[in-house]
């Protein structure tokens, strides 16, 4: 790890001023930044420690809305009784992510800034070619070992999977990220690689996430996060789904449904085609399974990751049917 200057910000304004400097990077929980600095991927000239800023870790939840401060820890949000009650998918996405130690360190704002786990991206010594690290150099994953790589939202420049869980639940429920001067949908905050794989977030120098906001809804209250992975715990998703369901008074017609998937796309992926196919329809297994297939419209595999095209629709269907069983 290359050395850097260390500065501690005591206010959001101070952190923003410092973040605008060339080579400055913000440090919150450290689980991404220190890890990537050790890998030789992140080489900050100055690390701005924002973890001591007061007042940014509040978790304020009502039936109408959740406002979660950028410095709230993943573990605290996961265990929050109001979050569990009004946004169960958010709590489930959080406690199924990483490990207890990492969840005690990682913050909600930092979680959104998490980088891909593409092994080529993380290994600059052995794989100097990577469009995320060196724009224009190429992609080592294409033609390489691709079992964990994305099948949705890829480009010729990059097929790296977005690894997080929380953001999958956030895009399903139309959450927004508060950058101080502007707010934007979490869905728009994340960028597909296109020709600019190095840009993963719509965030500018001098900007900092201060909070996320999640609108309450009946679908958010009846929601779940289903994560399928190679081992039972402490692993990234092979495929995951955040699903919310609201039924009509008859108890079987779908009034509102939200579906987003993780582990299969280059960014948190909202599955609107699945939602549209099911709205107004009766909740039955055959229709749910058929509609869930629509998530993979436009999917492109690279051989070893082809299983994700079959897996993700099954994960969605299982999550919807599980929610349907709960009254």
């Amino acid at each position: 790890m290359r050395d850097f200057s260390y500065l501690r910000a005591d206010s959001v304004e101070a952190a923003r001023n410092a973040a605008a400097l060339p080579g400055a990077m913000l440090l919150a929980g450290g689980t991404t930044l220190i890890d990537l600095a050790k890998c030789g991927v992140a080489e900050p000239a100055t690390v701005i420690d924002i973890s001591h800023i007061e007042g940014l870790n509040a978790i304020d939840v009502t039936a109408d809305r959740a406002v979660i401060g950028a410095l709230a820890k993943m573990s605290h949000v996961a265990d929050n009784a109001e979050v569990k009650s009004h946004f169960p998918a958010v709590s489930e996405a959080l406690w199924q992510a990483a490990s207890a130690q990492l969840r005690n360190m990682a913050t909600i704002g930092g979680n959104l800034m998490q980088r891909t786990r593409c092994p080529y991206f993380r290994d600059p010594q052995n794989f100097p070619v990577c469009n995320k690290r060196e724009p224009g150099s190429g992609c080592s994953a294409i033609g390489g070992v691709t079992r964990g790589h994305a099948v949705l939202g890829t480009s010729e420049a990059c097929i790296a999977t977005y690894p997080g869980d929380l953001a999958i639940a956030l895009v399903a429920f139309d959450a927004e990220v508060d950058l101080g001067e502007r707010k934007l949908k979490v869905e728009d905050f994340f960028l597909a690689p296109g020709a600019t794989a190095e840009r993963e977030h719509d965030i500018r120098p001098g900007e900092m996430i201060t909070a996320i906001e999640i609108p309450g809804s009946a679908a958010a209250r009846r929601s779940t996060y289903l994560k399928v992975r190679d081992r039972q715990s402490y692993e990234f998703a092979a495929a995951s789904a955040a699903v919310g369901l609201e039924l009509e008074g008859d108890g079987r017609t779908i009034r509102d449904i939200r579906v987003a998937v993780g582990g299969v796309a280059t960014k948190p992926w909202r599955a609107r085609a699945v939602e549209e196919a099911l709205k107004g329809k009766p909740l039955d297994e055959a229709s749910v399974r058929k509609a869930s297939e629509l998530v993979m419209e436009g999917a492109v595999d690279h051989g070893a990751n082809r299983y994700k095209i079959a897996l993700a629709p099954r994960v969605i269907a299982r999550a919807i049917l599980k929610l349907g069983e709960t009254a």
Partner: peptide
């Protein structure tokens, strides 16, 4: 009082 990983924590932090 909360468990964390010392390898990803800066001493200064």
């Amino acid at each position: 009082g909360e468990r964390v990983l010392a390898c990803l924590t800066l001493a200064a932090q």
